[in-house]
């Protein structure tokens, strides 16, 4: 299945901004993080199609996964 992975802030360093990636069906966010070499605990906000989810969330074909380190403001 195809997943659109979007990285933000420091996660972009030595990686990419946005990339479509292939994964086997039912891959979880945790498994994607392992491929990207991003430790789970560094992820502060994790969105699947714009909704906050947890790392064990299973992905579906066509999902957009957005990953942020701790950031905030206002």
């Amino acid at each position: 299945m195809k997943i659109l992975v979007k990285l933000f802030a420091t996660f972009r360093d030595n990686r990419f901004v946005k990339q479509e990636m292939e994964f086997p069906d039912d891959t979880t966010v945790k498994e994607v993080l392992a491929v990207l070499a991003i430790p789970d605990e560094e992820v502060a906000i994790l969105m699947v199609n714009g909704r906050n989810e947890e790392v064990d969330h299973p992905l579906k074909d066509g999902d957009t996964l957005s990953l942020f380190p701790p950031v905030g403001g206002g």
Binding site: F8, A9, S66, P69, P70, V71, G72, G73, G74
Partner: peptide, 14 residues
């Protein structure tokens, strides 16, 4: 980390 490096504008993408 977040606010010192990017300021509040880091919220745009989130």
């Amino acid at each position: 980390q977040g606010l010192p490096k990017y300021g509040t504008a880091v919220l745009v993408n989130i």
